[in-house]
Nucleic acid binder design. Structure first.
Lengths: 337, 337
DNA sequence: AAATCTTACGCAAACGTTTTCATATACTTG
DNA sequence: CAAGTATATGAAAACGTTTGCGTAAGATTT
């Protein structure tokens, strides 16, 4: 039960503990014979370096903090999986925290991670206010944002090109003959969602069709919210032939509401989402959507962060990845007259 | 950029740094006036305790390690969310690792967490061999297993009663008139799945129907595996009126395969799963299943772990939670003749 | 008023590493 | 062979806390 330390090993090996440390760290200034002997003794004694003590002296924990709005969200959990695996390969472990879509909590866990002396933080922010609130905090530790960006603050972030993606989606529906497209789930408290809405507006202008937006006043885009918005919308007669959702989760909520109303997709109504979460691919759902490349997002974010950890004084950068259309069976072509 | 330490605060306040420490820790042996003054200075200077240094001396990190097979799995991510929130309320942070369904990697990350001096580990094991492989390791740090258990090793674990749940599921199908029920996805490399299969066998014996099992020879139960098993099965004529899956993910794969074959659920085939993941509730899927109470599992596991951390010499315990049937629309009653 | 007890604080050790600097030994080289 | 140079190792500081112990000063008791 007693934990073996460097000193214990040193005593058995009859050397100073500095020597043991050097033997294990692969330092060149040590004799080959003693190195082998010490390493063998370490193995026999089951010595395992104390990462806390090492962090203490090296002023580096090899931990990176990850703040997500909710790990219980297919998009985030997919990305977290990629992040964790890649981070471990790079010698880092992940400390994961939920902000639960609460800016106050987000700030709190950020401080907590700073106190834990994580080497860096990757964060999927609750909303665009996150920037202001965290401005002083992000100065304390290298931070990279995923998915959320902003014009005025040159923070580090990686994101998909939300505007281009949503514009592409709108144009796709147009190409199928849709002229009356409802954009469902616009939000003002998230830059990501503003940019997505921009894509829709851009396309409308370009294609000369009338924008038609149903806003989401809550703080998040969930299946539940999509369901409620659609349900309310379906209460009254509507003329749209297609619904374009700001997120896949919303679209799945719409499916539910449509199902209850007997509205068939895509026969009666075409439907699109954005994100391409795993479950959108399942045939019963088979949602046409815009893909966010989760692996690339994860890898880019970590690369960017590791870079900043190494060279903190480097200028801030951003990486914008290209989204891509994923065509499934939730949209149909209609004759437009 | 320079980090404020206890010493800095002490210097400004004109006291020893022991006094600052005591002021913040709420020690009684300190004057009320100095306490207030010191705390105020701490706030002004933006002092934040260094958790690493504290861990060093207190021999406690307030970190718990979580090893899941894959965070990118709705069941695990739901539970992780609950765990993280509850743990944080208890003053702990979560270090999350994927074992990626690989026993060797599982062992490796376990060691890694031990080296990190986590206070305890919660683990969803890859399979029942995990116990043997980790026997020496679990002695080094309090460990609690979730969902996986075993007869011979009295490890700490919390689990749902898999056998009772699957027996209940089988009986439910029987009550709908099904006599030819295919059990899809049995696995030998997981005690959980053995116990679930036991539930099916028990029910068959009790109800006097012939067991009919399609094994899963891979290491995991994924949508993909379910799809492949069902697809192969549907190639040839089959006589089953219902398929009972060892996991919801498998059942969703079955839906996909059935869809492609034009087999309607529940009209042509009844289908059940086990786990009750979020997406099983969506109307297009609407899977009748057996619920695993994720919140209760998470809370029980953490309580058990915290208990062991406090009193490591306490005897091992197990907590078995009751599953419950969740009836949706993937099963139909048939006339049995 | 002397003796005792509290109270509030400082000193310093300890936690387990890494790493700089010093030093002893062995090895070159002129 | 003397002097210098590598080479291998040890001693000790440092990282930022917590906490046991010691001790002044003040409060209480007799």
């Amino acid at each position: 039960m007693a934990v073996v330390t460097l000193k214990d090993v040193a005593k058995v090996a009859g050397v100073s503990y500095a020597t043991v440390s050097r033997a294990l760290s692969g330092s060149p200034e040590i004799g080959e014979s003693t190195r082998k002997r010490v390493i063998k003794i370490c193995e026999e004694m089951g010595y395992m370096p104390n990462a806390v003590a090492r962090s203490m002296v090296m002023k580096r924990t090899n931990i990176i903090g990850l703040i997500v709005t909710s790990i219980d969200n297919p998009f985030m959990s997919e990305m977290t999986a990629h992040l964790e695996i890649y981070a471990r390969q790079c010698g880092y472990n992940l400390m994961v925290c939920n902000s639960s879509y609460d800016p106050a909590l987000e700030k709190e866990v950020f401080s907590l991670l700073v106190g834990r002396k994580v080497d860096g933080i990757i964060m999927i922010p609750v909303g665009s206010e996150s920037y202001d609130a965290l401005k002083t905090q992000t100065a304390q530790v290298p931070t990279v944002f995923i998915g959320e960006n902003t014009m005025d603050l040159p923070e580090n972030y990686v994101s998909v090109d939300n505007t281009a993606g949503m514009q592409q989606a709108t144009e796709y529906l147009y190409s199928l003959g849709h002229r009356n497209i409802l954009y469902l789930g616009a939000r003002d408290n998230s830059m990501t969602h503003k940019l997505r809405a921009d894509g829709y507006y851009n396309a409308c202008k370009k294609l000369n069709i009338e924008p038609n937006v149903l806003r989401n006043s809550s703080a998040r885009s969930s299946v539940q919210v999509g369901y409620e918005l659609a349900k309310a919308h379906f209460e009254q007669p509507f003329s749209e032939t297609a619904i374009l959702c700001a997120a896949d989760t919303l679209a799945i909520g719409v499916i539910q509401a449509a199902y209850e109303k007997g509205i068939r997709i895509p026969e009666d109504l075409s439907l699109m989402g954005f994100d391409n979460i795993t479950f959108s691919a399942l045939p019963p759902i088979s949602l046409t959507t815009v893909n966010q490349p989760k692996l690339e997002l994860a890898v880019s974010a970590l690369d960017m962060l590791l870079n900043r950890i190494k060279r903190p004084e480097t200028p801030h950068t951003k990486t914008i990845l290209s989204p891509s259309l994923v065509i499934r069976n939730s949209c149909r072509a209609i004759g437009n007259n």
